Simulated scan of single mutants.
Amino acid sequence: MKVILASDHGGINIRKEIGNLLEEMNIEYEDIGCECETSVDYPDYALPAAERVASGEFDRGILICGTGIGMSIAANKVKGIRCALVHDLFSAKATREHNDTNMLAMGERVIGPGLAREIAKVWLTTEFEGGRHEQRVKKIAQIENKHA
Rank of each mutant, 00 (worst) to 15 (best):
V3D: 07
V3F: 04
V3K: 06
A6F: 07
S7G: 11
S7E: 08
H9D: 08
G11R: 11
G11N: 11
G11S: 14
N13E: 13
N13T: 15
I14H: 03
K16N: 05
E17Q: 05
E17L: 01
E17I: 01
I18L: 01
G19T: 02
G19V: 02
L21E: 05
L22K: 12
E23P: 09
E23T: 15
E24C: 11
M25Y: 07
N26R: 13
E28D: 15
E28H: 15
Y29V: 02
G33R: 05
C36T: 11
E37I: 12
D41S: 15
D44N: 14
Y45F: 15
A46T: 10
L47E: 04
A49M: 04
E51M: 08
V53L: 06
G56I: 09
G56H: 10
E57A: 08
E57M: 04
F58T: 04
F58R: 03
F58I: 00
F58K: 04
D59V: 04
L63W: 06
I64K: 00
I64S: 01
I64T: 02
I64G: 00
T67D: 00
G68K: 01
G68V: 02
I69L: 09
M71Y: 10
M71H: 08
S72T: 09
I73M: 14
A74T: 11
N76E: 09
K79Q: 13
K79R: 11
K79M: 10
K79L: 07
G80P: 00
G80D: 00
G80F: 00
I81P: 01
A84R: 00
L85T: 01
L85E: 04
L89Q: 13
F90W: 14
S91K: 06
A92Y: 07
A92M: 12
E97W: 15
N99W: 09
N99Q: 15
N102C: 14
A105E: 12
M106T: 06
R109M: 03
R109N: 04
I111F: 12
I111T: 12
I111R: 06
G112A: 01
G114M: 03
G114H: 03
L115Q: 05
R117P: 02
A120H: 02
W123K: 02
W123N: 02
W123F: 07
L124G: 04
T125G: 05
E127C: 05
F128P: 01
F128L: 00
E129F: 01
E129W: 00
G130Q: 03
G130C: 03
H133M: 10
H133T: 06
H133G: 03
H133A: 05
E134K: 13
V137H: 04
K138H: 07
K138V: 10
K138I: 08
I140T: 12
A141W: 02
I143V: 12
N145M: 10
K146G: 14
H147T: 10
A148D: 12
